[in-house]
Write a protein that binds this DNA or RNA. Structure first.
Length: 839
RNA sequence: GCCGGAGUGGCGGAAUUGGAAGACGCGCCAGAUUCAAAAUCUGGUGAGGCAUUGCCUCGUGUGGGUUCGAGUCCCACCUCCGGCACCA
């Protein structure tokens, strides 16, 4: 049956060729209409595993390439969105191996976190058990995809052998004054008596479980002083030359350094407060000032004022809102306190307002409002009927809005006539002389709050002693193990607080009774240094051997979702800088090249388990194979952009692979004619394709490599129908197999072996191209008249300007279009284009 | 509200530098093969118009602008996506 079909196929396509000789490769099975992907793929997956092809050690004879995909949360199920990420990372691993690099591509698990804890609350199953099961499932899916990871370095953040080093890091930060405890607000559900993550606050600020309105509650929590590193984290962005501009910009804006001045405002008989401004040169334009609702002075200001009730209601309402909601409100709101402050520059009495557009977390939590030069202040002043004083003169006059541009200072006494920079310098000098203020720098960045009132995380290694206070757990006592528990629901505190044998301990300092910290760490801590641990994942003496890290670091290519462009990357940079400062990390910046990939969309939304629109790759592995699945993942769209999943895409790439299989492994009849232009053209296209595929991989345009190979295959099909020459055919096939090997590695390996190679394809060099062969001898030159295409002429590729113009003007079609008009100008861009401008 | 992106046929997308808009694939249509279907192969496929060959006009979210020439650059806006902790 099968051989009849093959015979029919051959008859249809090659019946007219005069057979001279044939190329027959040794194949394990006859050439079917489609290849047996199940058999081939499991065969090569076994070989790669058995031969430990992707396990590497430090090797100074080769340049290293360290390739990391952001480690996944073990949801138990890969979907085609994940597969996209790992197809990219594997393409790079295999491509770089072929280029002669010693490539490390490890994998691990971001296994602490809210999802596993929620699962435990629902099912009562210890997350330790469910997470391990899910990891096993996902590993199998990785194997079926054929991804080359060095599994000998596998790690998981819930493993005590891993998280003990989280705790060690915490203690190092603490010893250097970079970890401290301070009051911070949490979302609090009064009904469930539970702290809620932002994600658990839904809709109109209610608890996702019970729908109760969420409140804010202050708790004493651990924070890392990332702000001490703000300048370094900001300035060092300039050196991240191989990061996407959008990520660098977002990081810069996130840190948000602004220079300005802080000065003190006096309140009538009720103390004083500091304000920060980036525009001290506009101080004479202050017509009111604003305190954040949470400002410490608010209570004493409003007490007994004529606006007390209204102000109190406003503060209470603001407290109920999340910060994003406060920002999202289009209309500025606020309330007058009934109290006035004194503008120190001119002794003017200005009303003090409370408004939620001023945040306690930034600057001093209080501002001088200058509506003439600030748009938000302008809107507020307009709404509440407050005076506006212009202090900067625009050259083009005022337009009924705040003026943010430059100009001479006006209405400002001793600053009049000065421009911004000089005025700022002068007023800051004046603040100094009068001892009311000074130049200061503020950052948008805040310290990193790491306390979580949750079970499924790394315990914070501190104890509270009744006589010694906060005492760190000695490093030799690490890890502080996360105890098994029965009830995962937090009750006012972390679930760990209910475990007496965990909580009650002795003070490491005085050996008196003490209680452990019951909060766990933010999982961003786990993910801030795992790429360093991969260099030395099994070390139980030290977080990692600096010598091994020196070999592998920095990460040469880091790939992950664009949603991590700010927080994760910033924290990872901070911790790496810290590890560098204490002499462990060889580098300050962990990621040499960063690539942020887009997400996969289906049914108009990003693929996620909660949205119920995930597509499992298993069905595609089974019916079309991992290679076809991988090829479509590459083909689906630009890696940096979101892409839409199409269910019939994988069958399409399988068709291409089947066709290539037939071209590569099938029987063809060859001619022994002299080589001619047909062969020259076939080789030209092949070498141009090698060049294009290489360049496109290097610039991360994976989506265009697949069509390039498809086009080459189409050209080969035509070539095979017109007296093909065997040597030419062999070169085309060999180059194609090599190019396909990082993309569709199973089929490529099978064909490589079938062709009689004793070597493994994974160890073969990436194909090169010959520029002479790749050069095109003639090109189609576009001739335009007034910018519209009017003719196309085949010209020699090395035509010069005069020649191009001559050819263009000689065209009959062009002459027709020039009829009657005067040639004003001729633009020539040989050999591609001539544009004739006629009047 | 702020920061960062993105909008191109029925669909995903292509167009490295400002120079042929729609490569390649999916889908659809027609044909070949088949008792039939699937699979496979061949051809066609932005819209509108004229047409015997072929040719013309329009067309890259909207409105302006720069340029011999704009999907690409500039200004304003609309819609969608990612992030978020009013940046004073």
């Amino acid at each position: 049956m099968v051989s009849m079909m093959v015979a029919a196929f051959r008859r249809r396509h090659f019946i007219n060729r005069s057979p001279v000789r044939s190329a027959r490769w040794e194949l394990p099975s006859p050439v079917h209409m489609s290849y047996d992907h199940m058999k081939i793929e499991s065969k090569w997956q076994d070989v790669w595993e058995r031969e430990k092809v992707f396990e590497v050690t430090e090797d100074d004879s080769k340049p290293k390439f360290y390739n990391v995909a952001m480690y996944p949360y073990p949801s138990g199920e890969l979907h085609v969105g994940h597969v996209r990420n790992y197809t990219y990372i594997d393409l790079i691993t295999r491509y770089k191996m072929m280029q002669g690099f010693n490539v490390l591509s490890p994998m691990g698990w971001d296994s602490f976190g809210l999802n596993a804890e929620n699962h435990a609350i629902e099912t009562g199953i210890n997350p330790r058990v469910s997470v391990d099961e899910q990891i096993a499932k996902m590993k199998e899916q990785f194997r079926l995809l054929g991804v080359g990871f060095d599994w000998s370095r596998e790690l998981a953040s819930h493993d005590p052998a891993y998280y003990r080093w989280d705790q060690w890091l915490f203690l190092e930060l603490y010893e250097r004054g970079l970890a401290y405890k301070a009051e911070a607000a949490v979302n609090w559900c009064p009904k469930d008596q539970t702290v809620l993550a932002n994600e658990q606050v839904v809709g109109d600020d209610v608890c996702e479980r019970c729908g109760t309105p969420v409140e804010k509650k202050m708790l004493s929590q651990w924070q890392f002083k990332i702000t001490d590193y703000a300048d370094r984290l900001l300035d060092s962005i300039d050196n991240l030359h191989h990061w996407p501009d959008r990520v660098r910009t977002m990081q810069r804006n996130w840190i948000g350094r602004s220079k300005g001045a802080t000065f003190t405002m006096q309140v009538d008989g009720k103390g004083s407060f500091d304000v920060f401004t980036t525009r001290p040169d506009t101080s004479f334009g202050m017509t009111f000032c604003v305190l954040a609702p949470e400002h410490a002075l608010v209570e004493s200001l409003i007490k007994g004022s004529q606006n007390e009730t209204e102000a109190r209601d406003y503060v209470a309402a603001a407290r109920r809102q999340s910060e994003i909601e406060r920002l999202a409100e289009g209309d500025k709101t606020g309330v007058f306190t009934g109290v006035y402050a004194i503008n120190p520059v001119n002794d003017a009495r200005v009303p003090i307002y409370i408004a939620d557009y001023v945040l306690m977390g930034y600057g001093t939590g209080a501002i001088m409002a200058v509506p003439g030069q600030d748009q938000r202040d302008w809107e507020f002043a307009t709404k509440y009927g407050i005076d506006i004083i212009r202090t900067v003169q625009p050259e083009e006059g005022f337009d009924g809005e705040a003026y943010l541009g430059d100009g001479a200072t006006i209405n400002s006494d001793f600053l009049n006539g000065l421009h911004r920079e000089d005025a700022i310098a002068k007023i800051i000098g004046w603040f100094g002389e009068n001892e009311i203020g000074e130049a200061t720098t503020q950052y948008r960045l805040r310290d990193w709050l790491i306390s979580r009132q949750r079970y499924w995380g790394c315990p914070i290694p501190m104890v509270n002693c009744e006589s010694c206070g906060l005492v760190p757990v000695p490093k030799e006592d690490l890890p502080v193990l996360l105890p098994p528990i029965d009830d995962y629901l937090p009750k006012g505190k972390s679930p760990l607080a209910a475990v007496d044998e965990f909580v009650n301990t002795t003070c490491p300092r005085c050996e008196g009774p003490a209680q452990r910290e019951t909060d766990t760490m933010d999982t961003f801590m786990d993910s801030s240094w795992y790429f360093l641990r991969y260099a030395d994942p099994h070390n139980d003496e030290i977080i990692f051997d600096p010598e091994k890290a020196k070999y592998w670091m920095p990460v040469d290519q880091y790939i992950g979702g664009v949603e991590h462009a700010i927080l994760h990357l910033l924290y990872a940079r901070f911790i790496t800088m810290f590890l560098h400062d204490i002499g462990l990390s060889p580098v300050e910046e962990p990621f040499e090249r960063m690539f942020t990939q887009g997400m996969l969309i289906r049914d108009g939304a990003k693929m996620s388990k909660t949205k119920g629109n995930v597509v499992s790759p298993d069905h595609y592995y089974e019916n079309y194979g991992a290679d076809a699945t991988r090829l479509f993942e590459l083909f689906v769209g630009p890696p940096k952009d979101d892409a839409v999943w199409n269910d019939s895409g994988v069958p399409g790439t399988k068709r291409f692979l089947d066709r290539f299989w037939k071209q590569a492994a099938g029987d063809h009849r060859f001619s022994n004619r002299q080589t001619d232009g047909r062969d020259r053209e076939m080789l030209g296209i092949t070498h141009r394709t090698v060049r294009k595929v290489t360049e496109d991989i290097d610039r991360f345009h994976f989506n265009t490599t697949v069509p390039a190979l498809m086009t080459l295959s189409n050209e080969l099909q035509t070539y095979l129908g017109d007296e093909p020459v065997e040597d030419v055919y062999k070169e085309v096939i060999e180059k194609m197999v090599l190019m396909l090997s990082p993309m569709a590695p199973h089929l490529a390996h099978e064909l490589w072996e079938a062709k009689g190679h004793a070597t493994m394809l994974a160890h073969e060099p990436w194909p090169s191209w010959d520029e002479d062969l790749a050069r095109e001898e003639t090109v189609t030159m576009i001739v335009q008249v007034n910018g519209k295409v009017r003719d196309r002429i085949e010209v020699s590729a090395d035509i010069d300007e005069a020649g191009a113009e001559e050819m263009a003007l000689a065209s009959e079609k062009i002459q027709g279009w020039l009829d009657g008009g005067e040639v004003m100008r001729v633009i020539t861009r040989p050999p591609n284009l001539v544009n004739i401008v006629v009047g």
